[in-house]
Computed example of a mutant assay.
Amino acid sequence: MTVALEVAVQDPDGVLVAVRGGADRIELCTALALGGLTPSAALIDAAVAAATPVHVLVRPRAGGFEYSPSEVLVMLDDVRRAVDAGAHGVVVGAVRDGRVDATLVARVRAIAGSAEVTFHRAFDTLADRDQAIDVLAGIGVDRILTSGGASRAIDALDDIARVVARADGRLEVMAGAGIDDSMVGAVAATGVAAIHASAKRVVDEALQIDLGSLAGAGRSTREATDERRVRALRTTIDALERAR
């Protein structure tokens, strides 16, 4: 089985870098440092124009994954707009009372139509992930993104392998969280269909004034997609495939 490379990007330059580096698809978002938030309509348009399949993250705010009725309405509209803009898929995650919010996910699945639906790492917050897999497969979700319940995928390889076994081909399992090229072989050995990585570097900048509680004046940093890291992941995955 060929392992796909998905790169999470948060800005127009990141889209171009991921494409040049050899990503099979892009997860498009903003605010990666917060786990990712819904990107703007213009950014979606720019990413779709880059030709690599684009999956749009739909997450209206930072924090947990239990959403109010007003947030749900925004999320469903964002799903609709992303698909109408030509996105190949959407990425969502919603929890209700400690379980998959099956009602919301089913509504997303219906709106997405032929576009793919990925359930993101909200999955890793659930106590009964076996039940979650069954629920998501029953709804028709295409893919789960998981780190095996750990902060880094490399620290939960056995758990990721158990997710793959439980899914049993009913949906794809993609591993993500802190993966670089040195980890690809071990993560791929769990049987996942794809590897998800942000492949980012830190850019130092200086702010002259306070812009917010998390953006004070002085030395500041931001994260940007690193073409060298994307290419390293691509090269390692390709070498792994040739060795099989």
Rank of each mutant, 00 (worst) to 15 (best):
A156N: 11
D130P: 04
A132V: 00
D159T: 02
G149M: 09
E6D: 01
F123C: 03
F65M: 00
D13Q: 11
V74A: 05
M174P: 02
A193P: 00
S40Y: 14
E116F: 10
A46I: 01
L32Q: 06
K200Q: 14
P39M: 06
A94T: 10
D77A: 12
E66W: 01
I133T: 10
R201V: 08
V184M: 09
G178I: 11
T52Y: 04
V15K: 05
H55Q: 06
A224G: 07
R244Q: 05
H120L: 06
V135S: 09
S220K: 00
P53Y: 10
K200T: 14
A161T: 02
V95F: 03
R81V: 11
R152E: 08
A206W: 15
L157Q: 02
I44K: 05
E227M: 07
L214P: 02
M183G: 06
G216N: 08
A23I: 06
S70E: 14
V19E: 12
A177H: 07
L207G: 05
G64Y: 08
V56Q: 02
K200E: 14
S147E: 07
D204V: 15
V95I: 10
V117P: 04
G36Q: 06
L16W: 14
R229P: 14
A4C: 11
D238R: 11
D97A: 15
R219W: 09
R229K: 15
A50C: 14
T225N: 08
V17D: 11
L211I: 15
V184T: 15
R201T: 12
A42R: 13
I139L: 09
A49Q: 15
R143A: 07
D168S: 10
D168W: 12
M75Q: 10
L28M: 09
P39C: 08
F65Q: 00
S151C: 00
L57C: 00
S68Y: 08
A42D: 13
M183C: 02
C29W: 12
A87E: 05
G86H: 12
I154N: 07
A94N: 10
A206C: 12
E116M: 13
V9T: 06
V58T: 03
S213Q: 13
E205H: 12
A112P: 03
V17H: 11
R96T: 05
L145D: 02
L43D: 03
V105P: 04
A177V: 09
T52M: 04
T235F: 14
G86E: 13
V91C: 06
V184W: 08
L57N: 01
L211G: 15
D124Q: 00
V56W: 02
G21R: 05
A46G: 06
R152S: 05
A217I: 07
V3F: 04
A41R: 14
V173I: 14
R222C: 08
R129Q: 05
L233R: 15
L34R: 11
R244T: 10
A85N: 06
T236F: 08
A8I: 04
Q10H: 13
S182P: 03
L57T: 01
M75D: 10
A62E: 00
T146P: 01
H120E: 04
V117E: 11
